[in-house]
Structures are given as structure tokens and as C-alpha cells.
Amino acid sequence: MKNIITRAAVVLLLAVFMVPSAISQEIGIIQATATVISSLSILGSNNLVFGSVTPGINKIVPRTSAGFAGEWSITGTSLSELSLTLTLPTVLDHTSAAATMPISFSSTDAAISDGTGSQSAPNAVVDPNGPSVFRLGAGGLMYVWLGGTVQPSIAQSGGDYASNVTLTIAYTGN
């Protein structure tokens, strides 16, 4: 009898210790994961060059004019969608005097290529006055070309004129 009571007491103690362990907390861990793709890079590879202009005579540089049309080269993750926004000037500023020369951009003055088109035969013609959305090519490339028109007045001051043309790009997430 004494032996049974002793064994029962041992089991009771063991069980008492087991119960707290069973109701103790349980912990589960997972991971949050993400893979960031390559950042975009953009290079202004050619200025929009009007060269010499004659007072009173408009001068047009077509977007297809290599070496004169503005050109940007973009690299990023292949086939990713980008938004493109051009910030266009309305005048060119005299570099050393208080004079300006009007400049304008028509709705067909820009074009893009995803690497499969060329400046003379681009993938799409783009209105530079509004934002646009295009995908990088399979090689992760995109080119943007920009033409424009300057309108010097008859009394246009002589000298050099310049202004910034800014192309802003961003992934859309698509």
C-alpha cells in the first residue's frame, strides 16, 4: 500500500509539472520577403540643338534628326512599365543678356523606342506635352527623342540661348 501511494505521489508531481508546460506559450515565426528589382537610370545623351537661327524665321528640329534632336537613354528592369513626363520650357534664355526666344513642342515632337525601333522608325510617337506610359524593352532599354521649334523674333538679340528640358521617369509598379 505504501508503495502504491508513493508511486501515485510521484505521478501526481510529474503531472503537475506537465500541465504548466502544456499551457505555456507557443511561438511561430514566419518571414516577410521581398525582392527589389534594379533601379532606373537615365542619361541625357544628346541636347536639342537648333544651331544658328535667323531672326524672324522659325526653325524646326525634327525628332528624327540624329545629332540635333534631344535624346535620352534609359535602363532598368526588362519589360517594366514606366511613366515618362517631360518638363518643357516655353522660352530659351539668352546666356548673357536679358532676352528670350520662344520655343514650342507639337503633339508629335517626341518618340520612343524600346530597343527594337530606331530614331527614324521609332516604336511610338508621343505627345511631349503630356505624361505617357511605356514599357522597357526585353533588354531593359528605352530611348526617347524630342524635336521642337524655336520662333525668333525679327528683332531677336544675337547670342547664345539655352534652357533645360527635363525628362522624369518612374516605375509604375506594373
Binding site: 511561430g28 516577410a32 527589389v36 533601379s39
Partner: peptide
């Protein structure tokens, strides 16, 4: 943001 794989642990404790 530099490209690559990013991770973090999320721990759940129940009692």
C-alpha cells in the same frame, strides 16, 4: 533602393 532580396522575421506568440 538597392536591388536584391530583403527579409524580416514576424513572430507570433500564442498562449
Amino acid at each position: 533602393q538597392p536591388p536584391g532580396a530583403y527579409t524580416a522575421d514576424i513572430t507570433l506568440t500564442v498562449a
